[in-house]
Amino acid sequence: MESRVVNKGQISELLDKLAKDYNLIAPIKEETMTLFRRVSGAQDVLLDYNNSDISPKGCFLPQNEKTFSYMYTGDTLEINKPEGVQKTVLFGARPCDIKAILTFDPVFEGVKFGDEYYSNKRKSTVIIGLSCSKVLSTCFCYAMGGGPCDGTGSDLLLTEIGDKYYVEVNTEKGKALVDAYSQIFSSQGAEQLAKDKEELAKKLSGEFVRKVDLTGVKEVLDGNFELPYWDGDNAKKCIGCGTCTYVCPTCHCFDIFDYPTGDFTGDRLRCWDSCMFPEYTLEAGGHNPRPTRKERIRNRFMHKIKYHLDRYNMVGCVGCGRCVNKCPVNIDITKIINDLKEVAQNV
């Protein structure tokens, strides 16, 4: 693996260039929120942030996506797909959020079904990750196989060390970008920074305060769908909003519907959906396979710590802590995991 060095003083120059040459998506501050948005240059980009309020998953699975527009002329049905996707750079994504994109890949680029809307965006996007500099009390990426300085899934991973960024070149895509801006990415001093990065990773990995361990949890869920545990407080206190699913970087359920723009014209849209909503998978005949909050909560957490593993051998949670932070009633996936371990002792 190759590595490079960028002086902090040159990061603005890099961002300005990227914004010129690519559709640049980066973290910004909007009032109190940290969000990923398209930026026109370095001036808007937030380099020092803990984690964004909403993950950058929308780069690949936007909350609203037009899949095609239709026009019925009486004899023919005309279908128009949106124009090709732009070359994009996703800058500043944290390791957990990048890992989350990896959990999307087998869903949308699977052997059986490919999703061109997703894969077109995935192919034309370069992911420049940014290592964390701080571990929050809600963070637990370490327990989901990640880490604050883990570059898995990124094309380039930047780690802030003193007045420099240490750059790991992880893919060919990343290499091509580094070569294209070779005046900014130097090789000088990279060996020392590599050691410093190791140190930083080690230091940060010791700062997690949430004790989470998935060992044995899937096994207990495998054999026990109807655990009385799911009737407990979580189902009672859940208010059934979609916050956890919308802030989650790995939640990827969507709904498809037609949005008429006239009598014979319209758009077919794909929009984020949430398994916490009562109309989620509600069938035309009126049957709802998940009629109460108990089934909905069970579905969400089973999806994270069982179903995604069953299907793709990947845990469906990356430990970003957003749902823990944002849930209005403090439903906490790390507590659920710990509770289930306790339940496992008695089944």
Binding site: E30, I54, Q63, I239, G240, C241, G242, Y246, F277, P328
Partner: peptide, 12 residues
């Protein structure tokens, strides 16, 4: 414009 329509405000 920022609203995600998670409906937390309504549900709470």
């Amino acid at each position: 414009s920022r609203c995600l329509r998670c409906y937390a405000c309504r549900n709470v």
